[in-house]
Amino acid sequence: MRSTLLPEPTADRQLKHARLVQLLDARGADRIHLGTPEALAWYFDGPRTGVPLGGAPVFSATVHRDGTAVIRALANEAQRLAEEEIGGAEFEVIDWFGDLQASEPGVLRDTEVASELRAARAALLPVERARYAALGRDMATALTRVLSAATPTMTERELAGALSRAIYEAGAEPAVTLVAGASRAHVQHPLPTDAPLGSRAMGVITGRRHGLHVSATRWVQFSRPSAQVVETERRLFEVEADVWAATRPDRTLDEVLGDIRQAYARHGFGDDAWRKHHQGGPTGYNGRDPKAAPGLRDVVQAGQAFAWNPWAFDRGVGGKSEDTVVIDAGGSVVVLSADPAWPTLDIRGVARPAALDLF
């Protein structure tokens, strides 16, 4: 079965295949089986790989050295995939209860070369970069539109629902939707509850389109903030600026994380502040690809996307900063998820999102 309703693969497909061939050469293999959502979304130009959001893929693929790609798809998914999701591939249809994993001997599996595949997809290609920039603008605009209409009596669930709807209306899917009202500013991952927003609230989204993930965090306030809130916000932005400065091509994630630890201490949050929440890391075809952790030897590449998310709860005040950026050659930072309509602060020459005043 071949798709007749989709365009041929983008020009980037050939470049992605060349990266796979380098990996095959290094491993002495002739073909690789792709079965993880991130690998499938990357190679096939961003199809929706699962049915439940975040669920297991409903297809897999074997990519050969000569560029041939064979999709193994469940019988109840194959037609939709061929018509709506994946172009430029042959289809092998199996029973809906069948095994999507390759059984042929000698086939390299993506799970065997996870770090190498992360490196292969790290530097964004031209079509990916354009898609990412468009998604970033759409997600930032969605945040502005929804949060501008928030009220202190609105519940966290109501705001989360409005954010999710805005993401869908932008042609994307909500991979993450978090909301913290004033009573829950101490919660690292505030899954929404029935609590009212109160005097101050945080909205967090990760929207996914074409397989790419854009993450961003914004704050709104319904009364004049205290001096402590203003100070904590600015100090956390200084931590973020240090994080971006540390994220330079050819450095390992372990080295960057070492600088992040020092940044929290340098800006008055304490030596162990970095331990209280994960710090984010590379992004792209995974929300974090991977999540930065001590000992990781993944190397920062020019043209790679990052979503760092410094977080603190200091003297009763919660703070978090997060945007999706691309780190280019020389360490220059391009913010993808920015909306010119949102109020900003100048932090070392970069416009950062201030809390939106709604009082």
Rank of each mutant, 00 (worst) to 15 (best):
G106T: 12
P57Q: 08
L53F: 11
K16D: 13
G280F: 00
F44C: 07
A341M: 07
R109H: 15
V243F: 05
P105M: 10
P9N: 11
T144C: 10
Q301E: 15
V333W: 01
E156M: 02
A293W: 06
A114F: 04
D272S: 13
V325Q: 00
P196L: 07
T68W: 04
G67F: 02
S321N: 13
F313R: 00
V220R: 01
A354T: 12
D242W: 00
E173S: 09
A227C: 05
T283C: 06
D12C: 04
V333N: 10
R118G: 13
P343E: 14
R235G: 08
S164T: 10
I327E: 11
P249E: 15
R65Q: 09
E233N: 11
L5Q: 12
V335H: 02
L257V: 12
L236H: 02
P105N: 14
P353A: 13
D110T: 10
A195V: 07
R65K: 07
Q22V: 11
S183R: 02
R129W: 12
V179G: 02
G46S: 11
W244D: 10
H189N: 14
D272R: 04
A39K: 03
R209C: 08
F306D: 15
S226A: 06
R129N: 13
A293Q: 14
L212D: 14
V239K: 00
V146S: 06
R266H: 08
D138V: 11
A39G: 15
H64A: 13
G330E: 15
T10E: 14
F359G: 15
A69P: 06
A302P: 02
Q22C: 12
A312Q: 05
R109P: 03
A123F: 03
R157E: 14
G198A: 03
A140R: 00
M139C: 09
F97C: 11
T324R: 04
R65I: 11
A130D: 15
A293R: 08
F222N: 08
S3M: 03
T153E: 15
P174C: 12
Q188C: 09
A61W: 00
R261N: 05
R27T: 13
V127A: 14
R248K: 03
T68S: 14
A307Y: 04
A29Y: 05
V229M: 04
V179Q: 03
P7I: 09
V300G: 07
V58D: 07
A329Q: 09
S60F: 03
E104C: 03
E169M: 10
E255P: 05
D99C: 08
Q188S: 14
D289R: 01
F306I: 12
R251I: 11
E90F: 04
